[in-house]
């Protein structure tokens, strides 16, 4: 095989980052894995022998298993909502190509990403609190007599998590929709197709890679998120990320926290892989 010279192998370039990642990312992950394989004594200290008891706990105790199931359900719900809300915005962005309106839309979509998740969550706390804007509106217009305890409800958690993750869905959707050749729309119209048909037969199928990308970004983030549910809904909710956090900070039981978090990770990766495979299968079927 002819070698192409003047082309570096590249190893030297990636080496610093690889060393960094091994030391700061992979090694801690491996240690979490090993941590999850130890039982604890009464005081919560890890014992030297190996066992799968922590994983048994994760699957048998409803406190944990229910949290995993709930996280799974919530993530699906949030992903679906992000797609439903994000697609129209991305579509609008792909149609408005220039001007103040486009800049304004971009600023509104991107500015949440610029702000810390704790700030965004706090914003919802303020919005949904007893004398926050929403309750003021409900009481003021007479829909309810008393302010509703919107915080600590599941709905509030879903809404706030959707809000936090929505920009992550909009960006790949916008990229995909923006990448569709604008002439295709005109071609479709010149062949007699109306707006709806053009959308369902041309735009939507071609935007599918963007939909896939959005799902594969939002879903893992939703599975692992804990700051927002904690601030908006309280620490006792049955969500996996939250349970891991409370096991670490209140119960100090690191091994079970490790087992739960690794189970969460594996579950997330399996789901993402399944999504990826599903989308590829769909694409291949339609490529004919």
């Amino acid at each position: 095989m002819a070698a192409v010279r003047g082309r570096l192998s590249g190893v030297g370039f990636v080496l610093p980052a690889v060393v960094f990642l091994v030391l700061v990312f992979l090694v801690p992950l491996v240690r979490v894995l090993s941590l999850s394989l130890h039982p604890v004594d009464g005081a919560g200290n890890p014992l030297p022998e190996f066992s799968l008891v922590q994983y048994q706990r994760v699957f048998s105790e409803t406190f944990f298993s229910q949290a995993l199931v709930r996280s799974f359900q919530t993530s699906f719900l949030v992903t679906a909502l992000c797609l439903a809300l994000g697609y129209p915005v991305a579509y609008a962005l792909s149609r408005v190509r220039t001007g103040v309106l486009r800049t304004l839309m971009f600023v509104i979509v991107l500015s949440p990403l610029l702000t810390s998740v704790v700030v965004r969550s706090y914003g919802w706390v303020v919005l949904l609190s007893a004398n926050g804007a929403v309750n003021r509106l409900l009481v003021g217009t007479g829909i309810t007599d008393q302010p509703l305890p919107l915080l600590t409800s599941y709905t509030a958690v879903v809404i706030s998590v959707t809000h936090v993750l929505l920009p992550f869905a909009i960006i790949p959707l916008t990229t995909a929709l923006g990448g569709i050749d604008p002439h295709l729309r005109r071609a479709s119209q010149s062949l007699g197709a109306g707006a709806v048909r053009t959308f369902t037969r041309v735009t939507l199928p071609l935007s599918l890679p963007g939909v896939a990308a959005a799902c594969m970004v939002v879903f893992p983030l939703a599975m692992g998120i804990y700051i927002t549910p904690l601030l908006v809904g309280g620490a006792n909710q049955p969500l996996a990320g939250l349970r891991v956090y409370s096991q670490i900070t209140s119960v100090y039981d690191y091994p079970v926290a490790a087992a739960l978090s690794l189970t969460l990770l594996v579950l997330t990766l399996v789901c993402v892989a399944a999504m990826g495979a599903g989308f590829r299968f769909w694409e291949r079927r339609h490529d004919g």
Binding site: P28, L29, V244, Y245, I248, Y254, S261, L262, L264, L265
Partner: peptide, 9 residues
């Protein structure tokens, strides 16, 4: 990877 795992790690 969920941030909570990175945090725990």
């Amino acid at each position: 990877v969920p941030e909570i795992i990175i945090a725990l790690g």
